[in-house]
Structure formats: structure tokens, C-alpha cells
Computed example of a mutant assay.
Amino acid sequence: MVNVYILDMINVFIPHRWNNNDYSEISELLDRTKFIVRDYSVPASSPFDKIDKRYNVDPQIQRQIQYASVVVCSNRPANNNGMSIDEIKYAISIGKPVVAVQITDNISRQILMLDIPVISKRKNSLESWIEYNIN
């Protein structure tokens, strides 16, 4: 008899700003987990040509979030305003599980107000949270 192991695949969206290293830190953490990660975040190498300012979250980004199984953000206070927090709020509004990884010592006021769990920046913490929150 041959044992077949099915690897867990997850679709992830990481709300971020390019002026800090949060995206790369979260990506590297995800890469160390046991999951095969399909990243639906907007990459620096291929940003959307045009963002529609009529929406809090551009429909192109909404689509990326809809594909995600989970949204993983940073706890950085810089997320208090702007596109990142709007993306997080959109994810919550459509029922996506959202977790914040503790990148800095200070936690975003918005992350706290939205009651988003903040986990330590450890592989085991993220794996456990994903396993518990993704069906």
C-alpha cells in the first residue's frame, strides 16, 4: 500500500504598504509553514495600473481578497488609516478570516477595534491559527 500525503494549500492576501518590510516578513513566515501558499496580494513587480478612487477598495483588489482563504496582516500602527485598513475591513465584511502578525511592539488601534487576533511572529502560531480558522 502506498501512502499519499496531501499538502495543505491556502490562498492568502496580505494587505500592505511598500514603505515597510511587513509584506516580506509575513511572506517569509508563511513560506516557513507547512502550507503551500498561493499569494493573492498585489506584488510590487506587477501593481495594478489604475486604482478606482470611487471605491474604498478597488474592485481589482476586492477580487484578490475574494480569492483568498485567509487575510494575514501586520499589527503595525501605520495600518490605522489608508488602503490597508480598508482592505482588512472589506475582508471582514465578506467573512474572510483575518489575523495580524506581531511585527512591531505597538498594535494598531484599528486592529484592536476590529477585534482581530494578534499572534506572535512564529511559524507554529500562524500554522495553528490557520488550521483552526480555515475549513
Results as ranks from 00 to 15, higher is better:
residue 85 I to G: 10
residue 91 A to F: 00
residue 91 A to S: 07
residue 43 P to M: 02
residue 35 F to A: 12
residue 59 P to T: 11
residue 134 I to W: 15
residue 33 T to M: 01
residue 122 R to K: 07
residue 95 G to L: 06
residue 134 I to S: 10
residue 60 Q to R: 10
residue 33 T to Y: 04
residue 62 Q to F: 01
residue 95 G to V: 08
residue 11 N to L: 14
residue 118 V to N: 09
residue 24 S to E: 08
residue 115 D to E: 15
residue 122 R to Q: 10
residue 90 Y to N: 09
residue 30 L to W: 05
residue 104 T to E: 11
residue 64 Q to G: 01
residue 82 G to D: 00
residue 69 S to R: 11
residue 121 K to H: 06
residue 126 L to W: 14
residue 44 A to P: 00
residue 119 I to L: 07
residue 133 N to K: 08
residue 86 D to R: 02
residue 56 N to S: 13
residue 35 F to R: 00
residue 72 V to S: 03
residue 1 M to L: 14
residue 32 R to G: 03
residue 78 A to G: 14
residue 92 I to F: 02
residue 86 D to F: 02
residue 85 I to F: 05
residue 80 N to D: 12
residue 132 Y to C: 13
residue 3 N to P: 10
residue 17 R to K: 14
residue 48 F to S: 02
residue 103 I to V: 06
residue 80 N to G: 13
residue 72 V to W: 02
residue 103 I to Y: 04
residue 17 R to E: 09
residue 101 V to R: 00
residue 122 R to F: 04
residue 109 R to I: 11
residue 109 R to M: 06
residue 1 M to D: 10
residue 98 V to W: 00
residue 73 C to M: 15
residue 7 L to D: 05
residue 10 I to T: 04
residue 53 K to L: 13
residue 42 V to N: 08
residue 25 E to V: 10
residue 17 R to C: 15
residue 16 H to S: 15
residue 91 A to N: 02
residue 106 N to D: 14
residue 31 D to W: 05
residue 73 C to Q: 07
residue 8 D to E: 14
residue 98 V to G: 08
